[in-house]
Design a protein around this nucleic acid. Structure first.
Length: 213
DNA sequence: TCTATGATACCCT
DNA sequence: GGGTATCATAGAT
C-alpha cells in the first residue's frame, strides 16, 4: 500500500450535484473551493476567492438573456461544465449551473495562487502573487485556459477541475456585493468574495475592516 | 463582408 | 481616475 503515499493528494472534484442548484447559491459556495489545471503533468491552481452569478431569469447582464447562440451554447448544456468566452480580446472562465436547457453560470473572477506559482509568474510576466490571478482574464492567462477548453467537464477526472476546499472558510467572511464591469442589472448583489483577501479584483472592500489602507 | 460592442487589463496622469 | 489596445461574436448590410 505504498501506492497511496506516492500519489500526491490533490483536491477531489466536486460532483455535478454541486452545480445543479440555484446559481447564486453555487456562486457563494464556490468561495474557498479550489480550481486546478493539469498540463504537462504539472498542476497549476489555487483557492477561489471571488465569483459572480449570472442568472437564467431576470438578469439582462447574463449572456443567455437573449437566447442561445453558438457562443453561449455551453451555458445551456449540463451543469458542471466549463464555459469560456472572449471579451475585449481576453478570456473569461465560468462554471455552468442548474440544468441542461437553462442558461446560467458562475464567473470565476479570482483565485489565491497555491500550486504552480512559478509557472503562473512566467505566463503572466508578473512576480507579485497578488497580481497573478486577480481578474477573470489574468486568471485564464495564469492557468493557460482559453477557448479550446470551452465545454470541458469539471466534475470528472479531466485536465481542469474544481475541487474541494483545502481549508474551512468562515461563512461570515464571504460577502455579497454588486457585480462589476457590466452595464445592466448593476445593483444585484451577485458578486461573492472573501473579505480581507488581497487576491480579490476590483474595488477593495477589505479596507473597511482596517486590515489594509 | 462589415462594424459595433463588450462579464478587461494595462499604462499613463 | 481615465484613455485605449485588442479580437471574437453577433447582428446589420
Amino acid at each position: 500500500m505504498g501506492f497511496e503515499k506516492q500519489t500526491t493528494k490533490w483536491p477531489r472534484p466536486l460532483a455535478e450535484s454541486f452545480y445543479r442548484r440555484p446559481t447564486a447559491i453555487v456562486a457563494r459556495s464556490l468561495i474557498g473551493k479550489t480550481l486546478l489545471h493539469r498540463n504537462d503533468d504539472r498542476i497549476v491552481g489555487g483557492v477561489i476567492v471571488e465569483t459572480e452569478a449570472y442568472l437564467a431569469d431576470g438578469d439582462p447582464a447574463c449572456h443567455a438573456a437573449r437566447g442561445m447562440t453558438p457562443r453561449n451554447a455551453t451555458m445551456f448544456g449540463p451543469p458542471g461544465r466549463l464555459y469560456v468566452y472572449t471579451i475585449h480580446a481576453k478570456y473569461c472562465l465560468n462554471a455552468v449551473t442548474q440544468r441542461a436547457g437553462v442558461g446560467s453560470a458562475v464567473l470565476i473572477r479570482a483565485i489565491q495562487p497555491r500550486w504552480g506559482v512559478p509557472q503562473m509568474q512566467q505566463r503572466r510576466g508578473q512576480q507579485a502573487t497578488d497580481r497573478l490571478c486577480r481578474g477573470p482574464s489574468m486568471l485564464c492567462q495564469a492557468l493557460a485556459i482559453d477557448l479550446q477548453h470551452d465545454g470541458v467537464c469539471l466534475t470528472e477526472d479531466s485536465s481542469i477541475w474544481i475541487g474541494r476546499a483545502v481549508e474551512r472558510i468562515a461563512t461570515e467572511r464571504i460577502i455579497a456585493v454588486p457585480r462589476i464591469g457590466i452595464s445592466q442589472a448593476k445593483d444585484l448583489p451577485l458578486r461573492f468574495l472573501l473579505q480581507d483577501s488581497p487576491f480579490v479584483s476590483g474595488p477593495k472592500y477589505w479596507h473597511r475592516t482596517g486590515a489594509r489602507s
